[in-house]
Amino acid sequence: MLKKKENKKELIMQAALELFASKGFYTTTIPDIAASLKMSVGNMYNYFKSKDILAKEIIKYISSYLGNKLREINEQEISTKEKTRKIVEIYFKTASLKPEMIDYFLRIYLSNREVFKDSCEGMICVNEFVTEIMIYFEEGVKCGDLREQDFFSAFGLFMGYLGGMVFLKGENILPKDLNDYIDDIAFNIYKALSAE
């Protein structure tokens, strides 16, 4: 029963993500989302009490999705260099297969902080994702591959770079496919963070 409810919630979040991406966050309403799923608005509220709650759940959903992917990488017995490449790869792959997810993260979560202020303070709602990035950094420094520095200077470099590329892609500025950049970008990031 509970699992069924969770699956339905996931369906709603996926539908909402697509609508946010095509119509915009503010102009999309709960009735719009309900309509796209052929649900009644009343039933919709059984799952999410408000659009704000839905918005927060979505960011947690994305964080959890990416966090799980990163965790799989972190748990592999491979070098930091290889991990770096795999993280870039999974991020771009997600941006290609589920562009609405990365789009939501960049355009809605990061630019509408007021929506996320209650119970989504700081990085709480993206905790799963950030924790895995921390572990990737921490282990990289510990084994001597990465240079010790402030967490945010490294985090900003990594995520800012990837986010920037996905943004360029979204604006249709990139001449090539995102995947064509994986090698160079992974090389650049590793070189910038590396201890050598």
Binding site: M134, I135, E138, G140, D150, F151
Partner: peptide
């Protein structure tokens, strides 16, 4: 390491702690 303490509370996993 990258501002994350290398030694964490005894018995507490890194993921849990972070």
């Amino acid at each position: 390491n990258m501002a994350i303490p290398e030694n964490l509370p005894v018995g507490v996993g890194k993921r849990v702690y972070l």
